[in-house]
């Protein structure tokens, strides 16, 4: 464990807590894409299949349970909780996210580190996570007024993988034979997808204006 990875995990945890806070306290999921949340459920479900077979540390297992539990409960809230579901803008959240899964599974079957079920599923979850934010970013461009909590949620979600990139650089230089091109490239693509969001988020923070993405 290094500080970059810990910072990444804490940022990721913060993003999930911000979203749960928004949904649970003000009972609103306005501006939040259910499609992105559903993709994240699949990302965690396929990423943590080995939660019962491979033990790394208490911390690792605990965080896996937190990410699994929170992502499932966010989808449950947005689908089945009456008050929250009412605030979900279904007409705007129309990204065909199931179509995102197909290329990811095909790519995972083609490019992976080992051709085993666990490894292909793990690689699939990496590719899927890289594009999981797309429905949310598309919804953001359609939603005129983005509330602060949603903006903070996306900012933290994008930031966590940025810290992971620093962690991979650190581990590359400190651990011999630590090379994981698949993880690195999909992590880089994932972070680059947030580039324009980060730019407009920074502008809104600098000019102290509401965050607005150009349509």
């Amino acid at each position: 464990m290094n500080i970059f990875r810990l910072a990444g995990d804490m940022t990721h945890l913060a993003s999930v807590l911000v979203l749960l806070l928004k949904i649970h306290t003000i009972k609103s999921c306005a501006g939040v894409s259910l499609k992105t949340q559903e993709l994240y459920v699949i990302v965690f479900a396929t990423r943590y299949l080995d939660i019962f077979t491979s033990f790394v540390s208490i911390y690792n297992s605990l965080m896996k349970l937190i990410f699994l539990g929170s992502s499932f409960s966010i989808v449950w809230y947005m689908r089945y909780h009456k008050a929250v579901h009412r605030t979900y803008d279904r007409e705007q959240d129309t990204f065909r996210h199931w179509f995102l899964m197909l290329p990811c599974i095909l790519l995972a079957l083609l490019i992976h580190e080992k051709f085993t079920f666990f490894e292909v599923m793990w690689t699939f979850s990496l590719y899927l996570e890289a594009v999981a934010i797309l429905p949310q970013l598309v919804l953001l461009q359609r939603t005129r007024n983005i509330d602060n909590l949603t903006g903070q949620y996306i900012f933290l979600l994008g930031g966590y993988r940025g810290f992971y990139i620093l962690n991979w650089i650190y581990r590359y230089f400190t651990e011999p034979h630590y090379v994981h091109w698949i993880t690195w490239i999909s992590g880089l693509v994932q972070t680059l997808l947030y580039a324009d969001f980060f730019y407009y988020y920074f502008l809104s923070w600098k000019n102290n204006k509401k965050l607005q993405l150009p349509a």
Binding site: D9, R47, T53, S54, V56, N60, M63, F67, F118, Y164
Partner: peptide, 10 residues
């Protein structure tokens, strides 16, 4: 309990 090399990250 087997630990996959490289899968020690979340």
């Amino acid at each position: 309990l087997v630990t996959e090399p490289g899968h020690d990250e979340l």
